[in-house]
Simulated assay, not measured.
Amino acid sequence: MPTHYSVRTALRRPRPQMTPRNADVAALTYRLTALDRWLVRLLHDHDVLTTNQIITLTARGHRATSRRLSTLHLLGVLDAFRPFLTTGSAPYHYTVGPAGAAILAAARAVDVRTLRWRPDATSRIAHSPWLAHDVGRNEFMVRLAADHYHRPENRMTLWAGEHVCKALWADHIHPDAYAHITHTPTDGGRRRTVAFFVEHDTGSMRPERVDAKLAGYAALAASTHPPTSTLVLVHASTPGREKALRTLLGPTATALGVPVATTNSTAHDTDSPLADIWLPIGTCAERTTLLGLRRTFPQAGPAPVAPGTWTPDAADPQTHGALPWPPTPPLPPPVVGPITDPAPHGEVG
């Protein structure tokens, strides 16, 4: 029966029995590529990514990616779980494994205990009541980043996850993400960058609570001199939810001077999140592109951060403004040559 098959499939893959203490990090130096190390850093930043999301971000084939993920899992670099579904089967969800945590700590010359990683990290993520929200948020951000493969002139240059946002702006706001997307015209025109916060709404929170968040964005803007607002994107689960949110957010955003635009999952089912799916609040009644929102809200700018927050300091690689290290680039490094490390026998993601 489908239920029994789903349970057997979820339990089929063995979990590596190791901890950061007994992980042979030195022995993995010849096994890990730059792409593998990038993925470990990205998972540490954003907690969990599915097989399909990793495929979308890396723009590699399903078979090659699944084989590599299976290898990294059996090496303990990654951990994995598969949520239960009553019908069909869910993709594998990947997190940082014990060997991955040890590698990350060694590369940053810190102790594992400073990384927010715990031996039960995967269990906590797998059973978290916010798992669907976190996966949905990451799906939206992954699709934004992967638009670069279809439109090379658009590139996500920054993806700061929930943990980074908390470290920088917890006194005022608690967004789901903060990002920069840069548009470089193919005709050599002037580059434009749009900076924005993301509020990913699954419909589980009362609309009034979402509306109340705008006061924090207004307070953050007022903390700078001169005051500078940053664009807030609200991604709703359905068209009906988007309509309900706009009814509440409209008067508040206008009164506080917070630039807000909304969309819903249905609007970009068959298109890019960078397409004309964004409906600004308090201005025109037509949807526009994400980059077009910069013309709609010319007063919007990047969020306030200390100098050097987003880029490493060559003189002191362990110091990056208010962060211990900058966020991982959302797009992977170039792959040099094929990956020839054979995958072990067994099921792949």
Rank of each mutant, 00 (worst) to 15 (best):
H180F: 15
S66T: 08
A253P: 00
G189N: 03
R295E: 13
A300K: 04
D79H: 11
D201H: 06
S204G: 13
L78A: 04
L74Y: 13
V164I: 13
R191G: 00
R190K: 13
A132R: 14
E153M: 12
S89Q: 15
R118M: 11
L279M: 12
T65Y: 08
P329A: 09
C165L: 08
G337V: 05
P326A: 03
E286K: 12
T65F: 05
A90C: 03
T311D: 07
A105T: 02
G292C: 11
L69G: 07
C165V: 06
H172N: 08
H225N: 14
T202F: 00
Q53A: 14
T95I: 09
C165G: 10
A244M: 10
P326T: 00
R287S: 06
Q299S: 15
A121E: 10
A10Q: 13
A179R: 01
R241M: 07
W325Y: 15
L231F: 12
A27F: 05
H163Q: 12
L35G: 14
L85Q: 15
E199L: 10
H183I: 01
T340M: 09
D269L: 14
A222D: 13
R209P: 00
T50C: 08
W130A: 11
P344F: 12
R68G: 04
A212L: 01
P330C: 04
R15F: 05
T319P: 00
H62I: 12
P344D: 12
G203Y: 08
L279Y: 03
A212Y: 02
